[in-house]
Design a protein around this nucleic acid. Structure first.
Lengths: 96, 96, 96, 96
DNA sequence: CGGCCGTCTAAGGATC
DNA sequence: GATCCTTAGACGGCCG
């Protein structure tokens, strides 16, 4: 029964304005709803991305490798070098 | 899994698609760019959300608690699923 | 109020043996408890691993790279080759 | 972040530790081997758990449902946290 | 700058 | 046997 607070507002006090916190309650509600709306949009975009990967897979691409490429493109070239260099150093330290 | 783009190509790309190393390069590029575009939009939305929280903080709200509220609102639908009591579940586990 | 079923057994019927499912209930309880015990041990090991990485970090190592090395050591050498080859192919297809 | 093992070394390894490329090779090897050992133990435990479920299945239990029970038992302690009602949380968010 | 939280990836299990 | 989904682990960003 958290639903009262969750989905209806402070049960029945909507006419005279929130009894709790005065005008602030409306402000709070607005904030929460705007954030939730934006999060939904984010979620929708995530779905779109997923669809593209599904399409890629259908076309015969290796999705994991595509992700890797996208990751590399996001990194500064210097960063990539650095990571690879460090990996080599550790490898040689281990003799592998 | 080297098949797919390496050994099959994919339907319809054999004529006009510039194949590099047996790969439908344009198709690949398109996939990657679309994903990157969507990720940018996602990032922008994250920024918008952050702005709202900054505003909330300025208005004197406790941002951490607001996050908590949003989290709870998201979780509650899931709790409905758990309405099925453990006793029932045990019974099903026991096959009776 | 799931606690009855969860932590005490089927409230009060422990003497004559479970009223639900006969002997099976005890068997079920045993299975669950053994699994839970093993999962705790797993969790403890995860903590130990985490501690080692913390130590590694303190010693100045790059934890991410160490993880990468461990991952590589786990893979068949052939697998490593394959992934790298495919990555190169995609990269060349994109001209990067 | 090339510092750390590359440019600082770490406390006490300068005298006896075989340094390869400026790296405390033995220290690194020790870290990796300990992690790998622990991961093996984890894997072994996973096998034990799997065996129990196999046994359960043989005994006629519904493995999926047993997993569900274990999952729920794990979640319940968390629910206690949520006892704090949303109203209280809202009040805190509003600072009253 | 270290710890915490949330997201994202990868592996394992269930399903068809 | 392949796909889909769920879950655990890894990663990066945010906050204190």
């Amino acid at each position: 029964m958290l639903d009262g607070q969750l989905h209806e507002g402070q049960g029945g006090d909507t006419d005279t304005d929130p009894a709790v916190g005065g005008i602030a309650a409306d402000r709070l509600r607005s904030i929460i709803e705007r954030v939730e709306r934006l999060e939904e949009e984010r979620k929708a975009l995530a779905g779109d991305i997923k669809d593209i990967f599904t399409e890629a897979k259908s076309a015969g691409f290796d999705v994991k490798v595509i992700r890797q490429i996208i990751r590399l493109r996001k990194l500064e070239p210097a960063e990539v070098e650095e990571q690879e260099t460090l990996l080599d150093i550790y490898r040689r330290a281990l003799g592998i």
